[in-house]
Design a protein around this nucleic acid. Structure first.
Lengths: 236, 236
DNA sequence: TTTAAAACATGATAAAAATCATACCCATAG
DNA sequence: CTATGGGTATGATTTTTATCATGTTTTAAA
């Protein structure tokens, strides 16, 4: 069982230098601190569900979350992976729509909830934070557009390699410096890559045979990152 | 040759009620009006190029523009279609990066340029506009995520049908009420769908044989929209 | 500890889509 | 007028990927 530090205040939060909120004015941080509600979600639990209305935004203190979209035929598509410091649920709230994706916890996760009214109010009165928010949205939009292009143009082999590198960028390695610091099922990896589960399993085996990765249950070790980058065939 | 109304002022601009800028404070609109630089681009011309630095944002007064992304192997991916009232180039500017896509004019287009400093300054001092901007970004992000899911999960036939409907949503029909009001090459349609040009040509012929569309050079008529919607297999 | 269910793995096959090849049409430059 | 090239069209073939089938392993529950 994961042990969590008690979340006392936003002022002392571990994420206070990495989250978007770090640029908010002091007075608003105080206010957020007073109104926030913290919660711990266990692996597999849902923070919010596609189709329901947003009542605020969620700030991840510690943990890992997947954001997934339901395809028209019910198949999951994972559109983002989130970690401590990331904010969640702002997209729907700003658009004034229902959630277009579900947030599901990948491992025990501590999350602070900030009510809609407060969030909107702070955004309207704190240009700095508003600006950070726009930057965040722009960055997400950029990532989505790049992914879109790769999805349209790259073969699965390249996309799987890219996805492994993306997981590494997001969650990093365990203390051994080579094991990806998250446990995802083959199906989840497939839903991140945008392919059939069997294809993902097959290609992972190939990567293993090629010596690029090592597989041990859900543990994935990246043995030869350079080769993996070459396999991903990335420009930059 | 397209004839353009003289763009006198933002205050009398045809797009003043549809663009994001409609929510800006009066004083800022005045300032924008004074500093804007209008330009006419001819079909095929480039407004800005992927990889270069943004110096401002562009506001389309009249015309049609495609935003396209260069894939790692050089293949074009069209990520957005723009029309009068749409703003262009804000993504890179807000992220503080180079343009990640090129803006190329599909037909003679009139565009107003707003310098970076002014745009940023207005955003920082006009919460209303900043909010509209966040909304716009959120909407774009949503669209990108939906497209991403469809790209990953739907067959080309469905995606082509969806793309035709999307073109119709964006540019509407000509006065006959059935001809798509834009001329795109088969290759451009393919780059919108995310497929090979030949596949697009083949499927368009099938759609024609099925009586859903009529083809006459680059003119595309939507004859049976309901069937096309069914072919697209959309949830909502 | 046994047992059921879920996840993983792998081969065989089928379907989807890309690629290659060729031909046609048509606008326009010489 | 005619030649040239770009876009369109279509068939043949290959490649990629999904699906189906089946067995194995792992996980979690009784």
């Amino acid at each position: 069982m994961t042990h969590f530090h008690e979340v006392s205040t936003c002022q002392s939060c571990e994420q206070r230098f990495t989250s978007v909120f770090c640029k908010a004015k002091q007075e608003f941080i105080t206010e957020i601190n007073e109104q926030k509600v913290c919660n711990i979600y266990k692996k597999g639990q849902t923070i919010f569900n596609e189709g329901s209305y947003p009542f605020g935004v969620y700030c991840i203190n510690q943990g890992k979350v997947k954001l997934s979209h339901q395809g028209d035929d019910g198949k999951e598509q994972i559109i983002r992976l989130l970690r401590g410091g990331d904010v969640l649920g702002y997209r729907a709230l700003l658009s004034g729509e229902r959630y277009s994706a579900s947030a599901i916890v990948l491992e025990d996760t501590q999350v602070c909830f900030i009510p809609k009214e407060l969030f909107i109010n702070v955004l309207k009165n704190d240009a700095g934070l508003a600006f950070e928010m726009m930057k965040l949205l722009s960055d997400e939009l950029h990532k989505a557009e790049v992914k879109l292009t790769h999805l349209a143009q790259k073969p699965i082999r390249e996309r799987l390699a890219e996805t492994l590198l993306f997981i590494k960028e997001t969650y990093g390695f365990e203390s051994d410096g080579e094991t990806l610091n998250v446990r995802l099922s083959r199906e989840e990896i497939a839903n991140l890559v945008g392919t059939a589960t069997e294809s993902t399993i097959r290609l992972l085996s190939e990567f293993k045979k090629d010596g690029m990765v090592e597989l041990e249950g859900k543990k994935i070790k990246i043995l030869r990152q350079k080769e993996l980058i070459k396999t991903a065939n990335l420009q930059d």
